[in-house]
Nucleic acid binder design. Structure first.
Lengths: 223, 223
DNA sequence: CCGGATCCGGGTTGATACTG
DNA sequence: CAGTATCAACCCGGATCCGG
């Protein structure tokens, strides 16, 4: 895409991340960490392979990602966010917060659904709520796939599959998972609508406590 | 632009604001408030007039802007952000913070420079630092134009021209104005490099105090 | 399978010109 | 002032192909 040629921080930022797909590539790398080309493609349904290749090249030139030789079991290379790329976390958090407030309806027929997108919502908005060195493992199952999120006070980590057993697992429509994680729904509201909560539910309600004012999340007891 | 067809809050947000120019139109409306078509065009050098018209139509359909009959002196209509449009403030703040950290060099030859872009940086990152009902008027002069920003504890307002006298006025290269406002430069560093500070300089150093940790901004006394 | 490269049709963008 | 109209160039997405 062409530069806006405006000496403005917004325009400069968009010169780099305003291209189609770029912020979604950042989303995937922020969720899973270092990823292979095919992993990225899997998390970006709809992208053309030439575009993914070209975007990765541009992003590397712009200092957002680095290409590295894979650490151990894989015989290929992986893409990884640079420090500068990770600093886009705030941009993504803002976009998530804005976007989630519009998602009051379920996915349309041709919408892809992948659980890491809800997991990233959890990671970016809920991490830092556990006590200092406690860790909460949250399982998320939407659209026939599963991920687990480890929420720590200083960050989060997302993996595909239910590798480690979770403290608590959410399964059901992405609308309900997102509604609960974003605070739009209470636990009883969400379970009433069909969300399944397995495991230690009190861990979940602790997570949804808003630490800003110390108030307990609405659990449905007092609507 | 086509939808990503991903049931993800980031993708949903980008479905609406990911089109070229959209966030820059929001930037102008956030800076100046209700604006006429030609005001917008002026603040968006490089945009084709058909694109501006089409974007405004789409943004209206998406509930980001409203078209209103102008209040008093103007015989035409103005565009105004809706509540939902104003909620993009956090997205713009994040983009500004990310983008400004890369602007360590001045504008290139074909970059447009307009003072409201620095003013918005000030408005979005510095407002809320004055005491409860105090108001600080900051003048900004870059690239042969002038704006003034009124910084209040609960928001800000930007106007073109030096209508009201400012408490303190910055004039000089946009690089230095932005460097100072973003905290990358101290006052003495910026003035040493050619920035002119007119008026009550202590108002400026008060603004640059970081209220998070209560620490005083580096004024150059202790580098 | 993985990591792309190539080709192609159609849609989008942006410059210019024009109009009520 | 507030937009349309037109058109060339470019970008996007889908499909296909190809070397490890």
């Amino acid at each position: 895409m062409k530069s806006y040629h405006q000496y403005c921080s917004v325009a400069r930022a968009l010169d780099v991340v305003g291209d189609r797909w770029v912020l979604l590539i950042v989303r995937e790398l922020l969720a899973f960490g270092p990823s292979r080309y095919s992993d990225l493609k899997r998390g970006l349904p709809g992208i053309a392979s030439n575009l993914l290749a070209e975007r990765l090249r541009t992003m590397e030139a712009d200092g957002l990602v680095e290409r590295r030789d894979a650490p151990a079991p894989i015989g290929t290379q992986v893409y990884e966010l640079t420090e500068r790329g990770r600093e886009l976390e705030d941009v993504l958090r803002a976009l998530i917060r804005w976007g989630v407030s519009t998602m009051t309806t379920g996915p349309s027929e041709d919408d892809a659904v992948q659980p890491q997108w809800s997991a990233l919502l959890a990671g970016l908005t809920l991490s830092g709520r556990s006590s200092a060195d406690a860790e909460t493992i949250l399982g998320i199952e939407t659209g026939s796939e599963t991920v687990r999120v480890a929420l720590r006070h200083d960050g989060f980590e997302i993996e595909r599959g239910p590798h480690a057993e979770a403290d608590v697992t959410l399964s059901g429509p992405a609308l309900l998972v997102g509604g609960l994680l974003s605070g739009r729904l209470t636990i009883t509201e969400a379970t009433g609508l069909g969300l399944e909560v397995a495991g230690r539910a009190e861990v979940l309600s602790n997570l949804l406590v808003d630490p800003v004012d110390g108030e307990r999340a609405r659990t449905g007891a007092t609507p």
